[in-house]
Design a protein around this nucleic acid. Structure first.
Length: 513
DNA sequence: CGTGTTTGACCAGCGC
DNA sequence: GCGCTGGTCAAACACG
C-alpha cells in the first residue's frame, strides 16, 4: 500500500493526463496491486501508441494525415497546428494577435509580480510567526524559571517538581553560550545570570542562555521500569552527582527518545522503515522480552528502536525510537514522521512541567500527571508525557486510546489512509489526520476526551498549522536538518523547512498498527 | 547461499 | 570492588 501512495505521488502527472482521457478512476484502481501493473502497462502502451501514432500520422510532407490527429491532447493545453502557409484570415488577425500577446504578457508580468509579492508576504509572515512563537516560548520559559526560583526560595523541600522546557532537554546542540556558562555547580538557579535577571524583564541575553541549556535535574527510573520510590529522594547520591555534573547533560551525544504506546497484536509495528533485529533482552520488571532493532534502510543509519509489550497490559506495544535517519524516508514513513513529529513537537513546544509522578513507560501503568501546559493543546498532558529519564529524555505518546486496528500488522498510516476514505470519521486531512489518534489514555484523560476531539478537529482543519508550527520549531531547533523525513518534502513543510521538525538526535518516524 | 533471527557473551554504567 | 542491568556484538541457526 505504501507503494500505492508512492506511485500516486510519482505518477501524478500521468494521472492527470489520463484523467483528461476519461481515466479518472485510476487513482482508486492503482491501489490494487494487480491493477498497478495493468496501469503501468496500459500507460506505457498508450504512450507508445501516441508516439507511434504521431509518427505514423505524420506524412512525408509533415502534414497530419490521420483523422484523429487533431484530438491529441497533451494535457498541457497544447494544440497541434498544421505547418503550412498562413491563410488570408490569419494575415488579417496578425495585428490582433499581437495585441493579444502583449496583453497576455502584461498579465503574466502582473501575475508574476503579484506572486512574488505574495510570496514575500508569506515569508515575512512565517518569519514573524516564528519570532513571535520564539518569544512566547521564551516568556513561558522565563515564567517557569521564576516560579521555580520562587519555589526554591520559599520552600527548601527538594522534592518539588522541577520545571524545564522541552527545548532544554531535547536540544543536544552544544553552544558557545552553554560552554561559557558551564557551571560545575548544578545549582544554576543561583548562578545563572539569566535567572538572576529573570525578574528584571526579558532581554536577549538572559533569554538565550537558559534556552540553550539543558537542565536535567529531574530523575526518572529507567525506561521500562517501575518508578522506584528511592528516586523521589532528591538528595540521593546520583542526583547530587547529576547536579554537580551538570555539564554531563550537555554532551552533544545525548539523545532524545520518542516512545509510542499503542495497542497491537503484531509483534512489531509497521512504520514504513526497514528494521533488523540485533538483540533481545529480558528487562527487569517485565515478563515480556524487549527486542532491539536498528534501521537498515541505509548503511550506517543510527536509528534504533526497542519494542516491548507492556507488563500490565500485554496488548499494549511500546516502541521507543532513538536517533535520526541519515537517509530519505519512504513516503509512508515520511508522512508519519511529519505527522507524529508535528504532534510531538506541538506538545514539546510548550513549557513542560516534569513531575515525578509522570510516567507512561514500559512496564509502568501509573497514571500520568499533566506535563505540558501548551496553550494550544489544553489536553496535551493526557496525550503524551515528557520525561527526563536518565540518560535520555523521552517523550511518550500514548495511542492506546485509539481503536484497535482491524488486522495485526496493519500500518497506522494505512488506517489513516482508510480514514481519509471515510472509515475514520474523526480524521479528515492528511498528514495531520493522525493527531486525532492521540486521544488520551482512558486512565488518565477521559475527562479531556471531548476536548481532545474538538481541538484535534480544529487543528486538522487547518493545514497551515503544521507549516507554521514546523517553522517555529525549526527556528527553535536551529538550522533545518537534511536527513530523515526532511528529505521527503512534506506538504506540510513550510518555506525554508524541508520536511518535518525533528527532535534533535531523535527519530520521528513512528507509527502504530 | 544470502539474509535475517536467535541467543549467549561481553561491556559499560550505576548503585551498594 | 562487586553485582545488577541495559545495551550491543557476533556466532550459530533458520529460512527462502
Amino acid at each position: 500500500m505504501e507503494r500505492c501512495k508512492e506511485m500516486i505521488l510519482l505518477h501524478s502527472g500521468r494521472f492527470s493526463r489520463r484523467d483528461s482521457h476519461g481515466g479518472g478512476d485510476d487513482v482508486d484502481r492503482a491501489c490494487n496491486k494487480i491493477k498497478e501493473v495493468d496501469f503501468f502497462s496500459e500507460s506505457r502502451e498508450r504512450k507508445l501508441d501516441e508516439a507511434g501514432g504521431l509518427r505514423d500520422c505524420r506524412g512525408g510532407d509533415g502534414s497530419l494525415a490521420c483523422g484523429d490527429a487533431g484530438d491529441i491532447n497533451t494535457g498541457l493545453a497544447l494544440t497541434v497546428h498544421s505547418v503550412g502557409a498562413p491563410t488570408a484570415e490569419e494575415e488579417e488577425d496578425k495585428p490582433n494577435n499581437k495585441m493579444h500577446l502583449i496583453t497576455i504578457q502584461d498579465e503574466l508580468n502582473r501575475l508574476g509580480h503579484e506572486n512574488r509579492r505574495l510570496r514575500g508576504m508569506l515569508d515575512q509572515l512565517t518569519r514573524n510567526y516564528s519570532a513571535l512563537y520564539n518569544q512566547f516560548l521564551l516568556v513561558m520559559q522565563q515564567k517557569a524559571n521564576e516560579t521555580q526560583h520562587i519555589q526554591k526560595e520559599n520552600q527548601t523541600d527538594p522534592s518539588n517538581p522541577v520545571r524545564l522546557s522541552a527545548q532544554q532537554f531535547l536540544d543536544p546542540r552544544p553552544t558557545s553560550l552553554q560552554e561559557t556558562n558551564e557551571h560545575t555547580n548544578g545549582d544554576e538557579e543561583e548562578h545563572s545570570p539569566s535567572l538572576k535577571n529573570s525578574s528584571d524583564g526579558p532581554s536577549e541575553r538572559e533569554i538565550n542562555i537558559p534556552f540553550n541549556r539543558r537542565k536535567i535535574s529531574v530523575e526518572e527510573g529507567p525506561l521500562d521500569q517501575q518508578i522506584s520510590p528511592s528516586w523521589r529522594d532528591n538528595n540521593s547520591p546520583r542526583q547530587a552527582q547529576e547536579r554537580s555534573t551538570d555539564s554531563m547533560h550537555e554532551l552533544p551525544c545525548r539523545k532524545a527518545r520518542v516512545s509510542v504506546r499503542a495497542r497491537s497484536d503484531a509483534p512489531m509495528i509497521s512504520d514504513g522503515c526497514q528494521w533488523r533485529k540485533y538483540g533481545q533482552k529480558m528487562a527487569k520488571g517485565n515478563p515480556c522480552p524487549r527486542a532491539y532493532y536498528r534501521c537498515t534502510m541505509a548503511i550506517g543509519c543510527p536509528v534504533r528502536k526497542q519494542v516491548q509489550r507492556c507488563a500490565e497490559d500485554k496488548t499494549v506495544l511500546v516502541t521507543t525510537y532513538e536517533g535520526n535517519h541519515n537517509h530519505p524516508l519512504p513516503p509512508a514513513a515520511a508522512a508519519m514522521a511529519n505527522t507524529t513529529s508535528a504532534a510531538a513537537t506541538m506538545l514539546l513546544s510548550g513549557t513542560a512541567n516534569t513531575t515525578r509522578d509522570s510516567s507512561l513507560m514500559m512496564g509502568s501503568a501509573s497514571a500520568a500527571a499533566p506535563l505540558f501546559g501548551h496553550p494550544l493543546v489544553p489536553f496535551a498532558s493526557s496525550l503524551a508525557t515528557l520525561s527526563a529519564s536518565a540518560p535520555f529524555p523521552t517523550i511518550t505518546l500514548d495511542l492506546t486510546q485509539a481503536p484497535l486496528p482491524p488486522a495485526a500488522g496493519t500500518p497506522l498510516h494505512l488506517l489513516q489512509r482508510g480514514a481519509s476514505h471515510g472509515h475514520h470519521p474523526t480524521t479528515s486531512s492528511f498528514p495531520l489526520a493522525p493527531l486525532s489518534m492521540y486521544l488520551p489514555h482512558a486512565k488518565v484523560g477521559q475527562r479531556h476526551h471531548s476536548v481532545a476531539e474538538t481541538v484535534s478537529a480544529a487543528i486538522t482543519s487547518d493545514p497551515n498549522f503544521t507549516a507554521a508550527l514546523a517553522a517555529a520549531i525549526s527556528s527553535i531547533m536551529g538550522a533545518p536538518r537534511g536527513d530523515g523525513a526532511a528529505n521527503n518534502g512534506s506538504a506540510a513543510a513550510p518555506h525554508g523547512v524541508p520536511g518535518s521538525p525533528q527532535f534533535p538526535q531523535s527519530c520521528t518516524t513512528f507509527s502504530t498498527n
